[in-house]
Design a protein around this nucleic acid. Structure first.
Lengths: 357, 357
DNA sequence: CTAGTCTTGGAAAGCGCTTTCCCAAAGCTT
DNA sequence: AAGCTTTGGGAAAGCGCTTTCCAAGACTAG
């Protein structure tokens, strides 16, 4: 099977470095030094010849082979619940941009919130010898799944990769942590200060940390203003648009009077709530006020504009990218808290001077 | 962490197949046959021993090495303009789902519509020996860039990968082609039939094929109804939310009377237009009607609900995934046209019986 | 003019896997 | 019992690259 350089075969095997070396009349090593990282000086004329040969033949380095040889790749994995959710796609875009600057290529994994898929994806990144992996999205209560993920991430790091997480801190792993609880608390305080008195919370799934933290914070904020949130006023459901829609359906179907203000634990749910209220012929904020969380850019144009807690999603992705790519490996794991900013808009406006019952 | 005395060094080198073979007391070849594709029968007891050893040592196959050995990888590249645009993230999600079924892992590239980045990304996928690449998003007029991309994709296919494109057909490449022109035409016809008579088009960038096709189709639809679209009534701008917003600003700043109906060549622009009109205190559809294109799911809850042309984005991603992964290589390139469906909603409603001037 | 230090090209030894090839042992048929 | 085909394990040859290691030539220094 040994091919002489002279007998060019017809098979469509891709051109490799040896082909380039042959054509340029240099050794494999020299060709590699020219086209590779260039750690060693090569005669200008040879550089020229090799470069020319590579261009002529349309050479494209075999990256997997390079990875095998060096033990190092330029893949960065990003793991999200759902890339079509603007929350995640915004973060992912930022990571991609950061990775671009490091000539790294991003591989995005959709886990649909499933712990098994998450595990499989991180394992895959480990198999690929990825340079780093960014895990975004709320952890859930599944103890075993959680532990397995931590183990896998640890193995990943032992193998020389870097792991970063966006959301709940994972032990031993750099984390960009949005302050869900504090943000929701501030929102509760602000809404109370604006004159709201009766509330319901569309709380999302009880097992999701993010959802729970936001509920807890909001409740604390109200309590600080002397308002108590009854458990009847907490409706759980899905963490997406339909979850918000259905939670409002539940509220509407009850005999109890509607609360004057509804807090959905994320913007997408808030939009679902808005849709359901409109279907019921109710005015927002006239009849019911609605607030969300995240301040998703795509949703800034919904009307009435949503009161929400702004998370700097782009900055968060950017920070995660930086942690994953810039930092030295020997530093201790970091925790970067990200504060949210309460933004009051039309969706929770009250007629001037009035105090809602 | 039980290391056998025979283990040579303490360095944290990842466990490899040889380690597994040693521990199981079999040869490298046998270990490979058990853990690899299993193309050959292996004694049950040995299978058991190897599997056990792999589990004990937390073995994770080195995928790049496998790729080097076989020449095949399980990476699928998806190239989009902007993953945070719901149009693309919806498509990407569908491709990811399809790829999951093939145990392939998706790598998403953001080109931000820049031809150079697109080229670089496809080249990168070729370097990675990716199994397939899906290029989504409108081509622009840049002749050279376009040719370079085609060349690169052809090189990619010659190297054994599959290329699929979503949008304008590329020569020699399987394409999922939304019928932009026909859809826009149908929309024009439908709006005219609904009684609209005076129009403007927020046309996006003139060099983008998708934008142009939609404009051309819309114009043809109006002409079929005996309505002519003057060039004054075509405002170009960006293909995103801000483009819609600013185009309406332009309309408002003119001395001419506002058109009764505005067609934005995509939904995101339509939402920008809606925002601008609202800022100007104009009612939609009372004062001005607005229509979009795509029927983005995230935007179905904006109010008034947008008249649009629905593209089955998920199905399109799914089809692209299928073309990329299921099909045999020797078949001729295919062109799968995807029809759009006109959906009339509140944003273009006219008071019953009235005909807009 | 010789010894010592840089340069810089090439041969070859890996990297971790798959797969071909070889061969021993076992199962058939006559 | 002799000749076959299976069966399945192991040695070793790659895959395409990087990176030692070596050696030869080009310089300095004494």
């Amino acid at each position: 099977m040994t091919r002489r350089p002279s007998d060019r075969d017809q098979s469509s095997r891709a051109v490799n470095l040896q082909d380039i070396a042959d054509r340029a009349g240099v050794s494999l090593a020299t060709a590699s030094r020219v086209l590779g990282n260039g750690s060693r000086r090569v005669n200008d004329e040879l550089i020229e010849r090799v470069t020319r040969a590579a261009a002529d033949l349309g050479y494209s380095a075999n990256l997997p082979a390079r990875t095998v040889a060096t033990g190092y790749s330029d893949i960065v994995g990003v793991l999200v619940h759902d890339i079509s959710d603007p929350y995640f796609s915004t973060i992912a875009t930022a990571v991609v941009q950061r990775a671009d600057q490091h000539a790294a290529v991003v591989s995005i994994g959709n886990a649909f919130g499933d712990a098994r898929r998450e595990l499989a994806y991180v394992a895959m990144m480990r198999s690929m010898r990825a340079r780093a992996v960014v895990v975004a999205g709320s952890r859930s209560d599944d103890r075993d799944g959680h532990q397995a993920l931590c183990d896998e991430l640890e193995a990943f790091q032992r193998g020389g990769g870097r792991a970063v997480c966006i959301g709940q801190p994972l032990p031993g792993i750099d984390t960009v942590a949005p302050e869900n609880e504090a943000g929701a608390r501030a929102l509760g305080v602000a809404l109370a200060a604006a004159g709201h008195r009766s509330f319901a919370v569309l709380a999302g799934p009880p097992h999701l940390h993010t959802a729970r933290d936001r509920l807890r914070g909001f409740r604390a904020g109200l309590e600080a203003a002397g308002i108590e949130l009854h458990s009847d006023d907490v409706i759980s459901g899905q963490f997406n648009r339909d979850g918000g829609y259905e939670a409002v359906s539940t509220l509407l179907s009850r005999s109890a009077p509607l609360p004057r203000c509804v807090f959905a634990v994320n913007d997408v749910m808030a939009v679902g709530a808005l849709a359901r209220l409109r279907t019921a012929g109710l005015d927002v904020p006239g009849d019911v006020a609605v607030a969300g969380f995240d301040d998703i850019v795509t949703l800034r144009d919904v009307w009435p504009r949503l009161t929400t807690v702004r998370l700097p999603l782009e900055a968060m992705g950017e920070m995660a990218g930086r942690l994953a790519l810039d930092q030295q490996r020997d530093e201790a794991p970091r925790l970067l808290p990200v504060p949210g900013e309460v933004i009051l808009r039309e969706s929770t406006a009250l007629a001037a001077g009035s105090v809602a019952s």
